[in-house]
Simulated scan of single mutants.
Amino acid sequence: MNAFWNRWRKQLAWESVPAGTVEGRADRDPAVGPALTDELERVLTPVMRPCAGIALAGAAESPIHSFLTGHPYLPAGTTWPEGAAGPQIFVGQINFAEVASVGALPGFPRTGLLQWFVDADDTYGLTFDRSAGTAGFSTRWYADPSTAAGSPQPDAPTPTDTVDDLPMEFVGPTALQFRHSISIPDWSGLPAQHRSDPIWERLAAALGERRADPEFVYEEYVRGGSSLLDQLRTASKVGGYPSFTQDDPRGTGSYPAADSGQAELIIELDSIDVGGWGDSGVAHLFGDPAALATGGLTSIRYHWDCL
């Protein structure tokens, strides 16, 4: 974490920021920077989690790379998954060797390929009864994918050729690039003692922010669009804390509780990066990373929501 906090210290060394370059912020006392950094380190370090930020990176070059849409890795003899509406839509696949190459995620697989499919209907398979989270999607795991075994099969059905409304706003295999990042919870996920800490009022004053509401300060200047944390990742990622446009489903229906160890964020795809998923939507797979590392998929739950 030292490198992370050193970056914080550089960003909060406000004497290097010309006055007036950020609208609505007053001049700061240079001494405030290091003091606030130490306080933020004390408050945030206990809740930080590593994650692998996801970005789109052009056309995929191999059937065993990480990519979204297109034709998945499909060894000879493997059938395309079927859902209630026929052949399912291929969302994407994650090669965990690529994830691990940018930094280990504790408990997550370091190798293996996870694939994600959803039903070809107007909710992308999401159900709203007792089956919510457990139906309308498929996942597949390949512990040791082989390029030679994974060439596309011409006779395999490709639902994305016939479905008009896709989860994401592009077709064709689009490669994923990973970056080792830091994830912190949203305001409601912070422990109560963190939410009541005076650091948020101090940060508001230092930023010249007249609105001293702690939740606003945290979501805007620490976790949100004006964040000073250059390694923070709140959108598409592997691991870390999830983000939602509405409510966290975990702990309701068939979704295990967030603190159960069975509902950690495995993958998040945010429309801010990939488009689609309804109106500014976010899609998730939750589960037990340790079970996934052994090829266990029974804990995997599916969810997406939008505005």
Rank of each mutant, 00 (worst) to 15 (best):
K10W: 11
K10E: 14
A19G: 12
E23Y: 13
E23A: 13
G24N: 12
D29E: 15
A31D: 14
E39N: 04
H65R: 10
Y73I: 03
T78C: 00
T79M: 06
A84L: 12
G92V: 09
Q93D: 02
Q93S: 03
V99F: 00
V118I: 11
S131D: 15
A132W: 03
T139A: 15
W141I: 07
D144G: 05
D144T: 13
P145T: 11
A149I: 01
P152I: 10
T158R: 12
D161C: 07
D161Y: 10
D164Y: 09
D165P: 00
L166C: 11
M168K: 00
E169G: 12
E169Q: 14
G172R: 03
P173C: 04
L176A: 11
Q177M: 09
I184C: 04
P191C: 09
A204Y: 03
A204T: 05
L207K: 06
L207S: 05
E215F: 07
S227N: 14
D248P: 04
R250V: 08
S254F: 05
S260T: 10
Q262S: 14
I266G: 01
I267C: 00
I272R: 10
W277C: 03
A291R: 13
A291E: 15
L292R: 00
R301D: 00
D305Q: 12
L307P: 06
